Amino acid sequence: MIDKNDKILLRQIIMEHYTEPDNKKLINDSNSIIQKQDSPTCSDEIDVQILFNNDLIINCRFDGTACAIATAAADILCNGLKNLNLKKSLEYLNNYHSLITGEKYDESLLEELIVFSDIFKQGNRLNCALLAADGFKKIIMNEVK
């Protein structure tokens, strides 16, 4: 478990996902769903992509240009969403949203996303941290219908 009080470690994790993201670049699969996301407060623009097999997320990707917070969040979210079904993925995203907005959340479900535990104190960073999450949630909500 990551110590959310170790600010140096948290910065290192964010920078690692920003400079060397594992899930950047969209896959070429016509069965995937892509959602364009752009920030209302800055120039961040990313596309998020999910590939489902029935109700299971088998791949999750993103691409575009964004700040360290938005890029790291997108990359970590991709890692966490893979292999989740629709219900669990919504629980995961809703829990993350609670973390970002300073509401009650379940830390045991967050893994590396805990690096964003203090983002709610920085109002100008909320959109950055939620950019990919909101796009993934839109895709998943469309699949639930």
Rank of each mutant, 00 (worst) to 15 (best):
I2S: 04
D3Y: 00
K4N: 14
L10K: 05
R11P: 00
I13K: 00
M15G: 02
M15P: 10
H17V: 12
H17W: 12
E20M: 09
E20R: 13
E20V: 08
P21C: 07
N23F: 10
K24M: 11
K24C: 05
K25Y: 13
Q35L: 02
D38V: 08
D38Y: 09
S43Y: 03
S43P: 00
S43L: 06
D44M: 00
D47Y: 07
N54H: 12
D55N: 11
I57T: 11
N59I: 09
F62M: 02
G64E: 14
A68F: 08
I69W: 00
A70E: 11
A73L: 06
A73E: 03
D75C: 02
D75T: 03
I76C: 14
C78T: 11
L81R: 08
N85W: 09
K87Q: 15
K87L: 15
L90S: 13
N94E: 15
N94M: 09
Y96I: 08
S98R: 06
Y105G: 02
D106A: 06
D106R: 03
E107W: 00
L109I: 11
L110P: 01
L110M: 05
L110Y: 04
V115K: 04
S117M: 04
K121A: 02
N127L: 04
N127S: 04
L130C: 04
G135N: 01
K137C: 01
K137Y: 08
K137T: 12
K138F: 07
M141A: 08
N142W: 01
N142V: 00
